[in-house]
Design a protein around this nucleic acid. Structure first.
Lengths: 205, 205, 205, 205
DNA sequence: TGATAAGCGAGACGGTACGTCCGGTCTTGAG
DNA sequence: CTCAAGACCGGACGTACCGTCTCGCTTATCA
């Protein structure tokens, strides 16, 4: 599908959908307006109507593109180019440090801070949504991270019996909990070092 | 309500507030109805009117008692008698194990699972609410847990330089993240053991 | 003691009710407050709570005395001493003129204008109330007027076949309709004369 | 709604209001439900929510169409097609008889009996409403009746000096007062004849 | 080149849920 | 039994906003 889409700009005739094509500028304007409003009013008070107004368009144009507020916000808060969380240092300690620091930095972004709690709530009440958004983004990142940790076992950098998923729970959950209970201000370099040292002592052989 | 309850525990005769006293049965019925509906429809779709109907009363009776849905849900999901999270074994490993297991068990309860993501979202957009609910419940529990970990330093059970707050972030955040990404089914005994072993290796001297 | 009490009102022995007697000043203050508020906000927006506040007392003290807003307003708008509508000139033309002028003057009073439409509405939805208020006031006045008209037949001042009740309908209804459709300003001397002349031509032999 | 209807009778093509058009069936269902409930519970106890429920819709759909209960009830009790009160016999006696009989018949309808007292009360406390409803309905009917009576003067059927407005006061007010004091049962043929004979004797030259 | 089909602007619609007002009742303690 | 004081229960209110729909127009591809 994405390949097909790429070809669309080629000279080859692709069975392009009939009818008037969408105005790409609306996509961009809506995503930008969403990101802005998210930081101004938060997830709960973010209304599609307000996004439409700020983007200079109307509600149906948004609903045509994103089936729900959650999907829109997810795309606005986590642009696909993002790969902050994927390090590849070849060394477990550095990888873990990258992950922890990446999580801290991710959660330090105002857009992300504004989006995450709302998305968490939506996931809980709509498992289907959870799956669809994981597919879009997290599976790639999260899976890559788990693989990286798992492969460390073979290199003897991980204590046998340590479940990579649990390690990721601790990395991501630690940052999330610190964010929720103490705010983004405490997620500084000291926090990163403290967390990494605990985790490395905990998982090294 | 909790204020009234506190007042009544004083041994001195309290002059009693003027006016007709509240019907305590409504308090109970509403909390029960809230817990039920929370599991049936989730936090977002939980309406005050529906709670009132199920409890056999009306909206104003609820608004008189709880200023917002968040406060109501908090009280319904975390009754004050709860002290699951407060162990006191005198031994750090056992304390940590109790905390981890307690977190897992807490998040395994359907009511809690239904309530937490919604509450997290509300906290994010209303810091004042966060403070008020912490005051009611978490401060006591969370503070006690932090004290317990902190006091271990003096007993030589904790590696110097380990920040007790970070330890709690990892305990609570790990459980939360596991719940959010993999559901409550994975929070079994294996998960507890794996988490405890990582944490203990990580924080022991 | 009981003798003393007896003398207070009647000469006859009245078994005075036990308990604290009502404060007559509250009766007066409430009636006065009702009359004032009636003119300020109208019947519909008149709340018992506001009356109580203005009278310097509380709602239960009012409900103890008057079972409903209608009864209270009726008493406030039509004090019992009133006998404006009862002429007795011995001459039909003068009697009718007195009635028409009395009706016009009655409806010209601001309190009455404010009270009547609301009372009419209450009568319609509560026939029992209608009866109770008629008993208090209208029966006496209305009956006396009808008797006066009826007795004119015997004196040969009334055309045979004219139903006294219909005459009263026209007298009172004419004033009411003029009030409702054109306001109190049009109920002046010209209106009285015009109405009386039509009625007298219509009912004289 | 009536405005929309009027617009559509223009022969010029009307550009049609933008947005989704109203569901006309809701208009009808609401008016019917209002008429029914009016007779069952009366004006005062008629709630918009109950009307909506009976009509199978919801409150906002009603508030979108009618700004107040009074306007809704007025339209439900007096459909615009109504022209009961407009006779045109070319003869004053017959015209007056038609008016009186029309008033009696109008007030004999259960819907009208249930609506009128409540509307009267609302008129009294909201003169603006009065004007708006007169514009919709009464002005046409009432004005036509007054014209008819007034034109009789030129034809020599009316005694000079008789004010047509006063005649209408007596016609309408008489019926209203009879309804209020004695109920609809007494507004029969005998009442009509008695009233007409008084009025005709009163206003004929 | 016209028919077909989807997108867009504009905005009202049907309907859910909200949070508030207030009417009439009840409770307590004092007189 | 009344009073002051005031909170209580519950019916009804009018509003905000959600996601959908309708319309007239525009923009592109297909036949």
């Amino acid at each position: 599908m994405s390949l097909t889409a790429q070809r669309q700009t080629h000279h080859r005739a692709v069975p392009r959908a009939p009818g008037r094509p969408r105005d790409r500028r609306i996509d961009d304007a809506v995503l930008e307006a969403t990101a802005e409003l998210l930081q101004e009013v938060g997830y709960a008070r973010l209304s599609i109507a307000a996004v439409a107004a700020r983007a200079g368009t109307h509600k149906p144009a948004i609903y045509r593109r994103w089936p729900s507020k959650a999907q829109l916000v997810h795309e606005a808060a986590f642009p696909t180019e993002d790969s902050t969380l994927i390090p590849d240092t070849g060394n477990l300690r550095d990888d873990v440090e990258s992950m922890v620091r990446g999580a801290a930095e991710l959660f330090a972004r105002p857009v992300v801070r504004a989006a995450v709690p709302g998305l968490i709530a939506e996931f809980a009440s709509d498992p289907d949504l959870h799956a669809r958004l994981l597919e879009r983004f997290s599976e790639r990142v999260w899976g890559a991270m788990r693989d990286r940790v798992a492969s460390s076992t073979e290199r003897g950098e991980l204590r046998p019996g340590v479940d990579p998923s649990v390690v990721l729970d601790l990395v991501g959950g630690g940052a999330l909990m610190a964010l929720l209970t103490r705010g983004p201000g405490d997620l500084g370099e000291a926090w990163v070092e403290s967390t990494v040292s605990i985790l490395m002592e905990g998982i090294a052989p």
